[in-house]
Design a protein around this nucleic acid. Structure first.
Lengths: 241, 241
DNA sequence: GGCGCCAATTGACGCGCATCAAAGTGGCGG
DNA sequence: CCGCCACTTTGATGCGCGTCAATTGGCGCC
């Protein structure tokens, strides 16, 4: 399998989400058993393939989802086709833009993705009734904002080499948030073209920088996907830290 | 409950914030007169000059503020001095990162800025007691996230010319959010260097693109600061739309 | 007015990344 | 095992923007 956030991420006692049929810290973590039961009547659970569009850029959102496993890319496109990936979301993130039907961002599965979806109306009603839920949403949104701003520094001020190293570091830390050792191995959740769209580069430049990192023994790559980083410190130096 | 929320939100007549001694739509808009009175005992109001640091990058935040007037720039810096402005905040935005002492972003006044500050503890207590306030925060945070993602597209995929045009468009729309006509005039809230740091460019490139826009009659500039845009449509074409 | 100071402009040049093109690699069905 | 296809790598060339340096322009001060 590919990227998978290590079980439940800091969990002390994650609530069992009956709707999602899985333990995680998504939105359901804020609900009581009764509320979960009620919500689960309206929820649907499904697994989609890479490339599936989960939320259209200008389409009205009809539902919100918890990501149970996998990676989702959020992207924006210009009229002439230029594209920028503006964020990646991992389990157990919440997917969807509350309080607005359009958000100008399209969400697409990068890997196989398991999601648990709720109708828009149900979620918004629960939000207005449950401060806990709103608080949880605020926390996630603030975290996403922090991450977006970090990435703006990467996009605006880093060189191609630093960008690619930053990307590898991002995936490494999200795949194993609690990793203590200095070496990691993981699978890249997306193609060179996608990586380029995330970094504001071209596919060719990404490829060249990856081979440079390989030649300098900062990383090793098997089958174009499977990456091992023997020393995270050296990688983060390459990323500009 | 629902009605009340809606009311506070879309109110045409913003609530008088006794703490800030000014009518605006900031956080105070969610409070009742009693709560405002209580809060105002702990608030301080001040005006600062351009360049004043309002929140340090790694300093612990001790207070939160409403921006009453002026423009604040949020920026990040790398160890070697490279800098990126990751956001601009206008009145009546809320300034500060709840639920975390560090946020990795420093806030600096771009223009003369009037702020109304509250101690961290007071705000966080009120948040936990007032769902209304938390909702307002969530709304602003979501808006900031949308704006951050828009800017990521600009940073990652637009040319220098498109970037500068996008910046002018951003200022024009924020200076006069309700502008209906196709021509606007406004003052740039910051220097060429700051603009460059916001766009991921150099000062020289910003300057060259501005003179190009001037020569093409898309904009006019007086005294290096005062800008008039005769036709917003032509400007937004230059921005990549 | 003359002077100094700082921000902005303009010019000359080089480098980093994009662009275009071709060859290599892995995956999969026949 | 072979051939096909999508993806990736590698190479050659060009351009956009960065870099460095000189000039201009605004503004307060003596």
């Amino acid at each position: 399998m590919d990227i998978q956030r290590k079980d439940v991420h800091n969990s002390e006692t994650p609530v069992l989400c009956q709707a999602c049929e899985s333990r995680h810290r998504g939105v359901c973590g804020a609900l009581t058993p009764d509320q979960l039961l009620q919500l689960s009547k309206h929820s649907t659970r499904r697994t989609v393939e890479p490339g599936t569009e989960l939320v259209g850029e200008s389409l009205k959102t009809k539902s919100y989802s918890n990501i149970i496993s996998g990676v989702v890319k959020l992207s924006k496109m210009m009229a002439d086709g230029r594209q920028q990936i503006v964020g990646l979301q991992f389990a157990p993130d919440f997917l969807g833009r509350p309080f607005r039907s359009e958000n100008g961002v399209s969400a697409e599965a990068a890997t196989d993705v398991k999601v648990c979806s709720f109708p828009k109306a149900a979620i918004e009603r629960m939000i207005s009734e449950m401060p806990e839920l709103e608080h949880k949403l605020l926390e996630q949104t603030l975290t996403e904002l922090d991450e977006a701003r970090d990435w703006m520094l990467t996009l605006g001020r880093k060189t191609a080499g630093e960008k690619v190293a930053s990307f590898l570091l991002l995936i490494a830390t999200h795949a194993f948030p609690d990793n203590e050792s200095d070496s990691v191995t993981f699978d890249l959740p997306m193609s060179r073209t996608d990586i380029a769209d995330f970094l504001g580069l071209t596919m060719e430049t990404v490829s060249r920088q990856l081979t440079k990192l390989r030649k300098d023994d900062v990383i090793r790559i098997l089958n174009n996907r499977h990456v091992t980083v023997p020393d995270l410190t050296r990688l983060s130096e390459r990323a500009g830290f």
